[in-house]
Simulated assay, not measured.
Amino acid sequence: MVKNQQGFTLIEMMIVLLVISVLLIITIPNVTKNNSTINSKGCEAFVRMVEGQVQAYRMDNNGAVPSFAELQGAGYLKEGEASCPNGKAISIDAVNGTVTVAGS
């Protein structure tokens, strides 16, 4: 007596591996291509957040323009938050409190 054994054939397994490979080939380049866009958008958002913290500090301290050290010491920013996610440094203008990204 021969039992009816069910399972995947080699051809079916090869087709599944082919489909998975095609999906990986399509998605990986798109993710790596958009990495710089993601970092630049993150930098823009971080600059806006620092601008908001500068304004909050100025309201709380009678218009005084803070430095990064003062913002961190007063709890407006976490320690070490002085650069964008893409590594570019951020500076605060000492005269008017404008936040800018180095190299922009």
Rank of each mutant, 00 (worst) to 15 (best):
N30V: 14
L77D: 02
N61S: 04
N4P: 14
S104T: 15
K41N: 11
G73W: 11
T37W: 05
A45T: 13
G73P: 03
A89H: 02
G7V: 00
F8E: 00
G75C: 02
E81R: 09
V16C: 13
V101D: 02
C43W: 00
T37Y: 10
T32P: 01
A69P: 09
I38L: 08
G75Y: 06
T32K: 08
L23F: 15
S91K: 08
N39W: 04
L71W: 08
I28P: 01
I11M: 06
V99D: 04
V47S: 01
T32C: 01
D60N: 15
A102R: 05
N34V: 04
V22W: 03
E70K: 08
E44T: 11
L71M: 09
V2Y: 07
I92C: 03
L23R: 07
I20Y: 02
K3R: 12
T98R: 15
N35G: 07
M59E: 15
K33I: 09
A102E: 12
G73S: 11
F8K: 01
I92K: 01
V50P: 02
L71E: 05
S91Q: 06
E70P: 03
N39G: 07
V54S: 07
I25H: 11
I25P: 09
S83C: 07
D60W: 05
Q53P: 02
G63E: 09
I92Y: 06
F46K: 01
P29W: 02
L77H: 10
F46N: 00
A102D: 11
Q55A: 13
K33N: 14
G97W: 03
I26Y: 13
V16L: 09
S40V: 10
S40A: 15
G7M: 00
S40K: 10
A56D: 11
M49W: 13
S104R: 14
S67W: 02
K33H: 12
G42R: 00
V65R: 06
L24C: 03
R48P: 10
N86V: 00
T100C: 05
G73M: 02
E79D: 14
A82T: 15
Y57R: 13
R58H: 01
N61W: 04
P85N: 00
Y76A: 05
L18M: 14
M1L: 15
T9D: 00
Q5W: 00
C43V: 02
Q55H: 13
A74D: 11
E51S: 14
A56H: 06
T98V: 15
I25E: 11
V31N: 08
G103P: 12
A94E: 13
E81V: 12
D60G: 14
